[in-house]
């Protein structure tokens, strides 16, 4: 409940900022048509109002239950969230997306596959390595060879390594 209110409040803050940002950064229109800021601002006003209504509804709905209160915010355990599988999964996905360009497709995909499969629960090392190898090269063949997509090769020594591996295939 408290988290939901925080989520909604975060959205309200962001959309309020966006409302003023677009008004300040876009030049006013000349002539009969609408300016570039009118449509986004109309959407943002509607969003802010509806988020406000939603927050009131969440607060009223939560207020009926005795355990609800803003004190609940203090009970949100950041440590257990960070150590949880969901956070680890999100972090692995994010690191994979960020490393694709620098480390190249083959290396980053192989490492990501092993890490993610381990997070989900695969414990056998042999299965992890073999499935990561098969998956990496299956996706490589489908996209690079069959569809002609230029997959990232990485930078520096990692690029040389990727080219070497591709040369072997």
């Amino acid at each position: 409940m408290a988290l939901e209110l925080l989520f909604n409040a975060g959205l309200v803050v962001f959309f309020t900022y966006a409302y003023f940002f677009i008004g300040a950064t876009v030049p006013k229109a000349e002539g009969p048509g609408w300016g570039a800021e009118v449509w986004p601002q109309a959407i943002l006003i509607a969003l802010i109002i509806l988020l406000g209504v939603n927050m009131v509804m969440v607060y009223r709905g939560g207020g009926k239950t005795p355990e609800f209160g803003f004190g609940k915010l203090r009970q949100i355990s950041l440590t257990s969230f960070v150590q949880g599988k969901l956070f680890l999964g999100m972090a692995a996905l994010f690191v994979y997306a960020m490393s694709l360009q620098a480390a190249g497709f083959i290396l980053s995909t192989f490492v990501f596959f092993v890490v993610y499969a381990r997070i989900v629960g695969q414990k056998h090392t042999k299965t992890l390595v073999v499935s990561a190898f098969v998956a990496t090269f299956t996706v490589y063949f489908v996209f690079s060879r069959a569809l002609g997509v230029m997959l990232p090769r990485g930078y520096g020594i990692l690029r040389d390594f990727a080219i070497f591996l591709e040369g072997l295939l």
Partner: peptide, 22 residues
């Protein structure tokens, strides 16, 4: 545990293939 990462790989490369951009 194998299918999940495999779906991510296809999804990631499907997104990448659009413009060749990470």
């Amino acid at each position: 545990s194998i299918l999940g990462p495999l779906i991510v790989l296809f999804a990631a490369m499907g997104s990448f293939a659009l413009k060749g951009s990470t």
